[in-house]
Amino acid sequence: MVRIIGILAGLFFAVAALWAFANGAYNVASQGYLKEKTAESEFHLSPRPFNQASDDLVAHWDKQQLQRGYQVYKEVCSACHSLRHVAFRDLEQLGYTEAQVKAIAATWQVPGIDPNTGEATTVPGKPTDYFPLVYPNDVAARAANNNAIPPDLSLITKAREEGPAYVHSLLTGYRDIATFSVDGKHVNDEFPDFSTPPGLHFNPYFANLNIAMPPPLTSEGQVTYADGTPATIEQMSSDVAAFLTWTAEPSLPKRKQTGWPVVLFVLFGTILAYLAKQQIWARAKKKA
């Protein structure tokens, strides 16, 4: 009886393993690895390298850059994209004083209640308020953006692979499909049926190459930086990408800095263990 149960159990696990293998093979095929080449698979580009202060060995925030990034967000991005997970008081981490944060918050209109009528209205923001939503719901967002919903940017660099680099590349990556090429190959020469529909814009850093968002950074000097930094498209893109890295994980440098003591502790423990092992076996060898 025990032998029969063992055989059945073995058969069960064998079938399960075969099913897992078949399912994996099917997923590989269905995800396009075995399909014919497409314009998206051939001309979609990986994000360009993007380095910032929080990537250094001694990670830290470049507060001047984060302030410039906030300025780009407010003057360019906030027309369509929200930051619903960020409170105005969080901006103190960027180097703003309490009075400056209070003044910044007051320049935004947030949902409130009219004290005289009790009706919903908008009021100047306070430091404890969160950045307001741009659109009240998805229907309104679609109606205003060619049926596309602008994503909230609070966690965008966490939600996208190579997040900061992706944001930076996307903002500077708009191209003319008629002249765009990779390794000398043009999109329309390789895929004559591929096109950019009306209302969309060609961007090889976007997954399907066509994106509903028009180029947000269109000219140098589009933003006048308070610190006098020249506002080139590359600079504005880098600054807002760094700012969105901060919104997604304000404690990023602290987390990285914590890793160094942990690594040193593990290394120290490893050395102690090795020396202890040498000492113990040395005594054993002498006795032998």
Rank of each mutant, 00 (worst) to 15 (best):
S181F: 04
S195P: 07
K185A: 05
R160Y: 06
L66C: 13
V139A: 13
D114H: 10
P111D: 04
T121M: 15
Y73G: 01
H85L: 07
V72Y: 11
H186N: 03
T107N: 08
C80M: 09
G163D: 13
L171E: 03
A143S: 12
V187S: 08
T122C: 07
Y70D: 02
Y205R: 05
R142F: 05
V134W: 08
L133I: 09
F202H: 10
L153P: 03
H186Q: 06
S181I: 01
R160P: 02
D189R: 09
N203A: 06
T107E: 15
L200V: 04
A165W: 09
F131I: 03
N145V: 08
T97F: 05
L94G: 00
H85D: 14
S181L: 04
R89F: 01
D62N: 15
G112F: 13
Q71T: 14
D176R: 07
G125A: 00
E75D: 08
L91V: 05
T128K: 10
A79I: 04
D152L: 04
P151N: 10
Q100Y: 01
Y166K: 15
A87P: 00
Y174E: 04
A99D: 15
D62M: 13
F202T: 10
D138W: 10
H168G: 02
F131R: 05
S181N: 08
V134I: 12
T196E: 15
E75F: 12
N203P: 05
F131H: 11
R175F: 02
G95I: 00
T122E: 08
P198I: 12
G125E: 00
P136A: 12
T157D: 06
L170V: 04
A141L: 12
I149C: 02
V123Y: 02
S169R: 10
A120V: 09
T122A: 11
K126M: 06
I113E: 14
E162Q: 15
P151I: 05
D114G: 12
P111A: 02
W61Y: 06
V187W: 07
A159L: 03
H85W: 09
G163K: 11
N146S: 14
A148S: 12
A99I: 07
I113P: 14
A120Y: 14
T121I: 11
P164Y: 07
F194D: 12
G199N: 15
R175S: 08
K63W: 11
G95L: 00
H201K: 10
K126A: 00
E98I: 00
F180V: 07
F88E: 04
G112Q: 07
D62G: 11
V76L: 08
P192R: 01
